[in-house]
Every structure is written in structure tokens, then in C-alpha cells.
Nucleic acid binder design. Structure first.
Length: 464
RNA sequence: GGCGGCAUAGCCAAGUGGUAAGGCAGAGGACUGCAAAUCCUUUACCCCCAGUUCAAAUCUGGGUGCCGCCUCCA
């Protein structure tokens, strides 16, 4: 498996610290709102990475945090008339609703900052003890000047950063790039007691603390959006390596942005679409396929038209699956004939091609292409009269590959009796060549979202 | 000012030395009572200019255009 490592700016062969095991941390959402599809991209792509590595037999321990205390949380809670904790609980629940819809599996741990205050305080204390942090008023700052190697991840050095700095004037800091580890309480804000007085953790520290707590001082992979490279991940490295003296993460993975009209989708620009909003018009699985159709490090433009394209593509996948399941219903158990054998012999190649794509820095776009190649092969060769074994093999191959990408989660389900009766009535009408009646029933069902397709093996239905 | 990314058909998008995967849309055909699904056929001067090479979308240099980070942000 080759992965592009932001730390080295090269594609490297991935070698886990412990053979067969992967420990990975991915930055999760600040839970003050529904998340938008820009936020969703890392959730989806790193979920796919995790699924793929598990498919390859790795034991993956995956941690994704919830930031449940910060300025935005406090402000939003105030606006909503909720406590910060109530706000967090609400949007953590909503996170899971949308994440489930997108087919994102739960992490092994979803730690929250507020549940690790003691750990955070101990961590900050450790940095103080090492002379890498200092108290200024009621705040505690990380001393970037005292830490060697600041800027390694983002390819910046302190001087250049300061030259272009658009940072707030803050007299309390020794160095403009110093960042807060512990924020002293302001009136009306939630706070926890600490050696430096009541306050709350800064943003960056929670990830260092929770990553090392759940995964160890050196982890295999740390991931997130490109906008986290600086300063968030830079600061995580400084804190973690400052505190432990060990490398923090071996591989840093960063996904590209989702753009709208070629501009980055972001909360501050206000040009964002929440997954929740999009779910009103599209199955979130469409969003998932949309994201996986391009390489994760490339920016992708978002538009309704592109989702419609993805939706049509997804339908093609479902059609193939539904067709196989339909064929399987009354397929015979019999030995494969010569042409079936040839088809079966070709099946493993799709898996190989798929894996080759995935091994190349998670090239899901290429991998999706392989799935469509497989679909065509299946549509050509797996037709009426094929043996049950052949159909099953095709279905297994398709489900296996789409499963790794977390696609085709929708179940075919069943129809209620009333609709079944209508379908039967239409079948009778067709036998009598009463096309007018047959077509009117078909139209009527379509109104209800049931599409009928007549095949040589009888009528097949699907939901719109 | 510093650092970085991208430019492939109507729309999306892989491909990083041997003359272009895949999807969507379109056109024609097959199948169908009609459809749908499916299959077949069809649609690319790979941003521009130089250079390296037997050979470049792919490497090098120079342009042009767009975007991002350096501030909260996935």
C-alpha cells in the first residue's frame, strides 16, 4: 500500500509499526451544527481506507474525536439557549444520523474533549515541566520558539510564517505563532479547575491528548482535511513530540477540499451544503459515490448536476445487483458450462485491478472504474439460464468490491400486498394483451415510486 | 511576501515515458406490445511554447489561467 505522506511530500510504502495492525486518528467535527459535505469528505474517504485495510486483514483501531468545547460551541449554545453540553449531545446525535446515511462506520472510539479534561491538564503540565509552555495571565501557551522543528509538516519556517502573519496582536504571547493550550475562563463561560486557574482546553491540545491516550505515543496514521495541516496538525506535532520526545504520527494523510463554483466550501464563506439538506433530494449514498469518483487529494467541485450524474451512475450499480438477485431467484443449481467457466476465470482479475488501484494511495476513482468494468462483464455474461453458482459468484464479486467502498447498502426490501396485487393484475392484463390497462397500472405504480421492468424471467421492480 | 496544488471529450474523472480507463449526457442500432434495464457502435489536436528522448498527456524549462494554506475551517 502506497500512501502520500504530507510529512515527506512523497508517496511512500505504508509500513505499520506493528505488523498487521494499524492505529489511526482522524480529526472529527466540532459539534455545533450539522456537518457539510466538505466536512464529510474525510469521514468518507478515511472510512474507505479503514474498510480496505480491514479487507486486507489488518486490525485497525480507528479513533475520531468530537470537539465539544470551544468558542463556536459556546457562542452557538448561547444563541440556542442551550448549555454547551446539550448542544454537543444534540449534534453528536445528528452527526451519527448523517454519518450512518453516508455509510460511515462508527470509529472504535469517539472521544470527547470534555471527557478528557484531566488528561489534557496533565499533558499541558508536562509541556510546562519541559519548558515548552508558559503561563501568561490566565492562559497557557505553547512556546514555538522553544521547540525545534516547528513548521515541518506545513513546509513553513517560523520567520516566513510571521512575515505573512494575519494573526491577532496578542501582547501576552512571546512569539506571534505561539498558540493557546489552556484558555482562562471569561465571564459566563464553562470552565474546569486547573493549576492555572479555571478555564478550558485550547483546540489543538485535545487531539494530541486523545490520540496518544487511545493509540499510544506514536501512531501509524493521522488524517484530516488539508485545511488542518496548518496550524492544527502542525501544532499537534509540536505538542505531542514536545511532550513525549517521540515521533507522533508516521503518516499524515490529507484530503482535498470540496469546492462550490471553484471556491472552497467553508462555514466562514457560507457557501456550504449540509449533508442533511442534500439528503432531502438525494440518497446520501449518492454523495458517497460522488466523493469516491475522484482521487481524495484532488479538489472536487460540488454541484447539483454532478450529484445527478453520480445518482445515475449509482443506479447502474444497483441495476446490476438487482438483476443478479432477480436471476438468482429461480436459477438452477447446475454445473457451469464452458462459457460460464471462462467468465468465472475472469472474475479474480477485477479484484486484482481493484486492489491495485486502492494500493496506489487509495485511488478510489480508478477502483470505481474497475467496478463498472465488472458490471459490464456481468451484464454481458450473466443472463437468463446461467447456473445459480455463476450468478452467486458474480453477485459475491460485485458485493465484495462495492462493500469495500461502502456502497450498495440499500436493501431491495419487499412490497406490500396491495402493490403485489397490482403487479399481478398487470401481468394478467399483459397476458390478455390489454396493453392500455397494463400501461396504466405501470404508470400508477411509478407514481408511487415503484418502477416495473419486464424481463424474459418475469417482471422486475425497483424503487425510485 | 513565503509555501503548495491543479489544468485530459458536452459534463465529471483515471492514467505520470510507448500514441488515451470508467461514469453521466448525446447520436445510431439490437432487444421489447410499448417501455425500462441491458448490449453493440459512435464522440479527445490530453492549456500554450520550447527542450530531452527512437518514443511525452506523462520528464525538464518557460508561459498562461484557476485554486488553496500562511486566521476559525474537513
Amino acid at each position: 500500500m502506497k500512501l502520500y505522506n504530507t510529512l515527506t511530500k512523497t508517496k511512500e510504502e505504508f509500513i505499520p509499526i506493528k505488523p498487521g495492525e494499524i492505529r489511526m486518528y482522524s480529526c472529527g467535527p466540532t459539534v455545533y451544527n450539522y456537518f457539510h459535505i466538505g466536512n464529510a469528505r474525510p469521514f468518507v474517504i478515511f472510512d474507505v481506507f479503514r474498510r480496505y485495510m480491514e479487507h486486507k486483514g489488518y486490525k485497525v483501531t480507528f479513533v475520531q474525536n468530537f470537539t465539544d468545547i470551544d468558542d463556536k460551541m459556546i457562542q452557538r449554545a448561547k444563541e440556542e439557549g442551550l448549555t454547551v453540553q446539550e448542544l454537543a449531545e444534540k449534534f453528536i446525535a445528528e452527526y451519527f444520523v448523517d454519518a450512518d446515511g453516508l455509510g460511515i462506520r462508527r470509529a472504535d472510539f469517539h472521544p470527547k474533549a470534555t471527557e478528557h479534561i484531566d488528561d489534557i491538564i496533565a499533558f499541558v503540565q508536562k509541556l510546562m515541566d519541559k519548558g515548552l509552555a508558559y503561563q501568561a495571565g490566565s492562559d497557557v501557551y505553547f512556546d514555538t520558539g522553544a521547540y525545534e522543528g516547528y513548521g515541518r509538516l506545513s513546509g513553513q519556517n517560523l520567520e516566513d510564517l510571521e512575515l505573512g502573519a494575519r494573526i491577532d496582536i496578542n501582547d501576552k504571547k512571546k512569539n506571534p505563532m505561539d498558540f493557546v493550550l489552556w484558555k482562562g475562563q471569561k465571564p459566563g463561560e464553562p470552565a474546569w479547575d486547573s493549576p492555572w486557574g479555571p478555564g478550558r482546553p485550547g483546540w489543538h491540545i485535545e487531539c494530541s491528548v486523545m490520540a496518544t491516550k487511545y493509540l499510544g505515543e506514536t501512531i501509524d496514521i493521522h488524517s484530516g482535511g488539508q485545511d488542518l495541516i496548518f496550524p492544527h496538525h502542525e501544532n499537534e506535532i509540536a505538542q505531542s513530540e514536545g511532550a513525549t520526545g517521540k515521533p507522533f504520527a508516521r503518516y499524515w494523510l490529507h484530503n482535498g477540499y470540496i469546492n462550490v463554483d471553484n471556491r472552497k466550501m467553508s462555514k466562514s464563506l457560507g457557501n456550504f451544503f449540509t449533508v442533511r439538506d442534500i439528503s432531502k433530494d438525494f440518497d446520501p449514498e449518492v454523495v458517497r459515490l460522488f466523493m469516491l469518483s475522484s482521487h481524495y487529494r484532488n479538489p472536487i467541485n460540488f454541484s447539483r448536476e454532478l450529484l445527478e450524474q453520480a445518482q445515475s451512475a449509482l443506479e447502474r450499480l444497483y441495476n446490476a445487483r438487482n438483476n443478479l438477485e432477480h436471476l438468482l431467484k429461480d436459477a438452477e443449481e447446475k454445473p457451469a458450462d464452458e462459457s460460464e467457466k471462462q467468465f468465472l476465470d475472469r472474475l479474480p482479475r477485477f479484484k486484482e485491478d481493484f486492489e491495485r488501484a486502492m494500493e496506489d494511495d487509495i485511488n478510489t476513482a480508478d477502483a470505481v472504474g474497475v467496478i463498472f468494468d465488472l458490471v459490464r462483464e456481468i451484464n454481458i455474461h450473466v443472463t437468463a439460464g446461467r447456473s445459480a453458482g455463476t450468478i452467486r459468484a458474480a453477485l459475491d464479486a460485485l458485493k465484495s468490491l462495492t462493500g469495500i467502498l461502502g456502497l450498495l447498502n440499500r436493501k431491495q426490501g419487499s412490497l406490500d400486498g396491495e402493490i403485489e396485487e397490482l403487479i399481478e393484475k398487470r401481468e394478467q392484463a399483459r397476458k390478455m394483451k390489454n396493453w392500455a390497462l397494463a400501461d396504466s397500472i405501470r404508470d400508477q405504480l411509478k407514481e408511487q415510486g415503484i418502477v416495473l421492468e419486464d424481463t424474459p424471467q418475469g417482471v422486475r421492480w425497483k424503487r425510485l
